[in-house]
Amino acid sequence: MPDATAPAEVVRRARALPVRRARRLVGSLTVVLVLAVAARVLLGDFTITIPDFFRILGGAEIPGASYILMESKLPRAVLGVLVGAALGLGGAIFQTTLRNPLASPDVVGISMGASAAAALAIITFGLDGPAVAACAIAGAAVVSLVVRLVAGRDPAGLYAGGQRLVLVGIGMAAALQALVQYLFTRADVYDAHLVLRWLTGSLHDADWATIRIVGLALLVLLPVVLWQGRSLPATELGPDTATGLGVGPRREDVLLLVGVLLVAVAVAAAGPVAFVSFLAGPIARALNAGRTSLAGAALTGAVIVVGADYAADYLLVDINFPVGVVTGALGAPFLLWLLASGRASRRQF
């Protein structure tokens, strides 16, 4: 007599396999991130031993080492983790919700909206510090709203695979880039230098005040992602199936709004670090056998930013790049490959 429990066991194992794979992915990426942070904090021009690191964290004062660790190395590493996680998570939300790998905040103009608003605040109004960050967040929100309104929806009420939104976003980004170039013609040398450094994306100005703000924003937004992100597997099946499963446009709107806010906060803190939100999601999917992993995308984004910041400082002797230069160099070939391979035209990726 055949074992009646065999089919149930097969189904149970099949359902458990993706969960185990996702856990292994998150665990492996966590280890990689810890190693990247350790390299960023302990190595470089001024090396810090592991015992000295924990002594300094415990309050000990070591001449030279304490200042370099607490005011330079550690803030940059921590801010890199937070910014990378926010960009990776925001990009994965966009790409998955819109079912299009090109629909990342880098491509659809969200990052450019924040950049243009920040450039306008610095050059035209002479603002700095938190005021520039607030303008960047507002700029990202306004641009996302305009892109959504212009792109519209399909007859089912859902975004048509993100194709229209991507095209509208590219056009909006081009217009905003023209605005930034015009602002450069009106700026003095000092303001132009500030804007150029900000537009490139940099962790050079990392401080604990900024870290606290970004950390608080993530504490507020991450529970919303966890709650609303449960619908992403249904969303990936397409608009008709998602509607049939009860995932309507409102849930998509909430997720996209959270994605916009995540990217806006990250850009306000470190500038538009290029292509992190574009790269993190597809890399995490590839490592997870084609399944979306928001936690994996966040960790991948953090690894990219921390690793790129270390490479930007020490890849070439006596030359320090902003982190956005390195991530841009990584992301541009990936974008070209995505377009050349035809993957960008697929509704599900």
Rank of each mutant, 00 (worst) to 15 (best):
A156K: 08
V142C: 06
D52Y: 06
F278A: 07
K73L: 11
D240E: 15
R291T: 11
I122C: 08
A140E: 09
R212Y: 04
V258H: 06
T243I: 14
S341V: 07
R24Y: 11
G238I: 04
A269L: 11
P75L: 13
Y159V: 14
M1E: 14
A140T: 07
A329M: 05
G80R: 03
Y67S: 14
A312C: 03
L120K: 11
S293Q: 10
F349E: 05
V247P: 00
A269N: 12
A209G: 15
V78Y: 05
L336K: 04
I93W: 05
V147E: 04
G244F: 09
L196P: 02
I319K: 05
E252T: 07
L199I: 14
G201M: 10
A36T: 01
L42T: 06
V265G: 03
R13K: 13
V303F: 00
P233N: 08
D207I: 01
F53Y: 13
V224N: 01
Y182E: 13
D318T: 15
P7F: 00
I137N: 02
R13V: 09
F125C: 01
D318L: 09
L222N: 04
A329Y: 05
T300I: 08
V258W: 10
V37D: 05
G324D: 09
L29N: 03
V180E: 11
I110E: 07
D205A: 15
A192P: 09
L79C: 00
P18K: 04
Y314C: 00
V225I: 07
A217N: 01
V325T: 14
V83L: 09
W198Q: 13
M172W: 01
V195A: 12
T96R: 04
A174Q: 12
G201S: 12
I211H: 03
V220A: 15
S72Y: 08
D205I: 07
R153P: 06
I68S: 15
